[in-house]
Every structure is written in C-alpha cells, then in structure tokens.
C-alpha cells in the first residue's frame, strides 16, 4: 500500500486505529489512539502492544483494526520487543517512532522489570500506558494501579492497597520525558505527545483511560469523568523532564471528589470512604508540589 507513507491530514487521523475495532463503547483507548495519531502527524509509528484490551482491539486474523505495522507481544515484553525493533530501525536510518501501547497490568505489574530496564538503557521509544486501573481484558481484576478501596473481581471487599506512583517510578529513571495525559484536555494532550515525538530516548506517557466496563460507569460520561478526576486533584496533569524538572499543568479547581466517585459503581458498590481518597489526593499534591518547588522546569 503505497499510500501508507503519505502525509496524514488532520481530517483523516484514523490511520493508527481504524473503524471497526472491538473497543467497548466509551473506551478511552479509542480517543487516545486517535489523538496519538493526530499528534504524530506525518510520522508513521511502529506499534508494540502486549496482551491487554489494546491488542484485542485489532480484532481477529486476517483483519486488523491497526493501520500501522503492529507487533502483538507477550504480556511482559513490549519494551523488550520495541527495543529490538527500535535498534534495528535506527541502524537502518529509519526514524519512525516506536510506540508501546500497554495497559496498567502490563506496565505497573508484570512488565515493570522490562519497562524499567528499557528506560534505564534510554531506548529510543515512546511508552504509552493507558491506565484503566484494572485488568480489563481478563474481566476486571485488580492491578497495582487500582485505587485504594475500589471493588474488582479480585478485591471483592475493596482494594486494601494504595495505587502505585508509576510516574514517580519512571521519573526516578531520569528519562528524557514523562507526562500524564488527560482525554479531557485535548491541547495539553496533543502538546505532550508532540514533545514526546520531538524528544530522543525513552519517553513515558501515562493516560488515565475511562473503562465503562471495568469502572461500571456510563460510556457517555468517560471524558467528563476524566475532567472531574483532574479537577478534583486525583489525576494530576504534569510533566517531568530528565526526571529532574517538574512542570504542573493543571491544579485542582475545587471540583468535588463526589462527582467523580458517585458515577462509578466500582467505588459506590464498595462504599469507599471519600476521606481515604482525599488523604491520597493531599499526599500526592504535597509530594508533587515539593518536587516542583525543588526541581522546577521553568
């Protein structure tokens, strides 16, 4: 297909993800992949997707919803497979972005050693974690990204442990660029993917991804839930350069936490104490503010 290399116009940004994919209605991945595509503009990526909803998205052989060359890797291996691809492309003078697109299970849990190693070697790739805070593909089990209190099929009485600070872990690797992405903040999202695109070495992007199936929420409300998560301070928008220069992109705006949790049965069914979450939010911001003060980007 000779057209595959042709420039992509902004009116035709479905090249990475085509129509007819198997994402649930309201899945955050659908919009996330479109915006990723849009921000990459003319640059055509190679994708590596481990076991997760993101590879089921493709549908079954011989068809695929991915319009770019894509490797479906084993669950823990996407950064290792992407390393092999990236190294060989570069030695052949091919500068296409190599992108891992992985869930929180592949990122926070089973793949963390592989991810850490690729980050430590500063491999030339963009790693995007679409964090739906659950194992979606296997039907909704806890991960170490699942927030405290939330009910999943393997935390039926509510999760006892706190969510892991993956951004902190990745920043500690002193990688060139790490940032959080919000599906309710389009300009900020596109700007960050473009920075990632223009940066060399290991880049980490963390996108909170609404998952109506796992969150037990209304498909139509996903984007608004993300806006609420940012507004109440639960999902901070920030970026870290070289692991040592922090920039906060949006501060809590007084949005009540209740408007986030009351619309998701994963919270309401477990009767999560909002105070638990408020404590988590204030600790998170105390840490982030301290880092931004000590290591400002500007």
């Amino acid at each position: 297909m000779s057209t595959a290399m042709a420039p992509v116009s902004k009116t035709h940004c479905d090249n990475v993800l085509r129509p007819g994919n198997t994402n649930c209605a309201g899945c955050g991945m659908s919009l996330g992949l479109h915006w990723l595509d849009e921000a990459l503009s003319e640059e055509r990526p190679f994708m590596v997707i481990p076991a997760c909803c993101g590879i089921v998205t493709a549908g079954a052989f011989p068809t695929t919803a991915y319009g770019v060359p894509t490797a479906a890797s084993t669950f823990a291996s996407s950064p290792a497979v992407a390393t092999g691809i990236s190294q060989i492309l570069r030695m052949n003078g091919e500068e296409n972005p190599v992108i891992c697109w992985a869930g929180d299970g592949g990122t926070y849990d089973i793949g963390i050693a592989t991810l850490s190693a690729a980050a430590e070697r500063n491999e030339d790739m963009i790693y995007v974690c679409y964090d739906n805070e659950i194992y979606g593909n296997t039907g909704g089990q806890r991960s170490s990204a699942t927030p405290e209190g939330v009910r999943t099929s393997t935390s039926p009485r509510g999760k006892v442990e706190q969510k892991k600070d993956m951004m902190g872990i990745m920043a500690a690797h002193r990688i060139p660029y790490a940032a959080t992405l919000s599906l309710a903040h389009r300009d900020d999202f596109l700007r960050k993917v473009r920075i990632a695109r223009e940066t060399k070495g290991f880049r980490f992007l963390l996108m909170l991804s609404p998952c109506p199936t796992g969150w037990k929420s209304e498909p139509a409300e996903g984007i608004d839930l993300i806006r609420t998560a940012v507004g109440c301070g639960l999902f901070p928008l920030y970026e870290v350069y070289e692991g040592l220069r922090y920039r906060i992109n949006a501060r809590p705006d007084g949005t009540p936490l209740e408007s986030y949790i009351s619309r998701q049965k994963r919270y309401t069914a477990a009767k999560v104490d909002p105070q638990l979450i408020r404590n988590f939010i204030s600790e998170q911001w105390r840490y982030l503010d301290a880092m931004a003060r000590a290591f400002p980007a500007d």
Binding site: V48, S77, A80, G84, I85, Q87, I88, A113, T114
Partner: peptide, 21 residues
C-alpha cells in the same frame, strides 16, 4: 546491536523485535 537486558525473557523479547524488524 547486542542489548544488555535485565532477564532472559527480555533477551528473547529483543531478538523477537530485531527479527520482526
């Protein structure tokens, strides 16, 4: 490129990526 990975699982992962490229 001979990549000093963190495990055998990833050693084969890198080989897979290299061969796919």
């Amino acid at each position: 490129a001979v990549v000093p990975v963190e495990s055998e699982h990833s050693a084969m992962g890198v080989c897979i990526g290299a061969a796919l490229a």
